[in-house]
């Protein structure tokens, strides 16, 4: 495993060198993402100019939630972006055959194909929003809190990875599943606002079936005790533990599901070809 990570990092270093050949592409791409973030923030400030809280969360709490979401999504874009190419027909055009003839795990080879430098935008904005909101929230953030935050960044990344893996694996049967991936990805837009503002149907979708709500909204509630956890009633004394258990179990379930569908898909292509 350590050797694979070493190989991955070496290859990624070359990819970064390759990406550096296209400085203009990088600047334009990052500018696009920055503008997108700014629009979200302007919209948010406009909303909060008329109200004190949204779904029970104050402006600073929403900024914390958005910051966490942006950081996790930025990390996901950075290392796990190439799967989009495969979902949009890459496998059926022969890439899978190429992966299969190299002595490395297939998904690692997909990850090695690209490091998306445009992710610098959301990662930087995410970190900045987290820093500003933690400072302005006047909450005592000790070492344990930072460890929990790091854990939520990790589980959020696992959830995004697993969801993409499940949908991308479908392309191993269908030839392409990028369109479905795009539709599911659109649900991320709902998590720019507190999930508590939506009705129970959308809450169920975002907190169970397409669990983007567990990337940033539910982790934010770990530090905000005044807002109840949607869909579940949890006693106040075990609230923090319940949130940790909820996020952990959904991450594990989706990761296992993703691995299962991926393995089945590979088995299917080994039987039928791509």
């Amino acid at each position: 495993m350590a050797e694979l990570i070493k190989i991955y990092l070496r290859v990624i270093a070359y990819r970064l060198y390759g990406a550096a050949q296209y400085k203009m592409d990088f600047l334009v791409g990052m500018l696009g993402l920055l503008v997108q973030q700014l629009i979200i923030l302007i919209l948010l400030f406009t909303i909060f100019s008329g109200i004190d809280s949204l779904g029970g969360l104050t402006l600073n709490q929403v900024l914390f939630m958005i910051g966490l979401g942006q950081l996790v999504r930025g990390l996901d874009i950075a290392y796990n972006d190439y799967i989009w190419v495969e979902a949009f027909g890459g496998f059926s055009e022969g890439s899978l055959y190429q992966y299969l003839t190299r002595p490395m795990p297939i998904y690692l080879q997909i990850l090695m194909n690209r490091v998306n430098t445009e992710s610098v935008g959301p990662i930087a904005i995410g970190i900045a929003l987290l820093a500003v909101s933690i400072h302005r929230l006047n909450v005592e953030f000790n070492v344990n809190d930072f460890l929990v935050l790091a854990y939520f960044i990790f589980t959020g990344a696992v959830i995004l990875f697993s969801l993409k893996l499940i949908v991308a694996s479908l392309s191993l049967w269908w030839g392409r599943s990028g369109e479905l991936m795009q539709v599911i990805h659109e649900f991320v837009e709902f998590t720019r606002y507190p999930v508590s503002i939506y009705g129970w149907i959308l809450q169920s979708v975002l907190l169970v079936f397409i669990p983007f709500g567990l990337v940033s909204f539910i982790p934010t509630l770990y530090w905000i005790e005044s807002v109840p956890i949607p869909l579940f009633s949890v006693p106040a004394e075990s609230r923090k533990l319940a949130i940790l258990a909820y996020v952990t179990s959904i991450s594990i379930i989706y990761f296992l599901l993703g691995s299962y569908v991926w393995r089945k898909g590979l088995q299917s292509t080994a039987n039928t070809g791509t």
Binding site: I7, R10, V11, Y14, Y17, A19, Q21, P103, M104
Partner: peptide, 18 residues
């Protein structure tokens, strides 16, 4: 690798095939 000198691809393959 499309954007890199040929030799860089060879070096990457050196790592992949150890």
């Amino acid at each position: 690798l499309w954007d890199l000198p040929v030799k860089h691809s060879f070096v990457i393959l050196r790592h992949i095939y150890r």
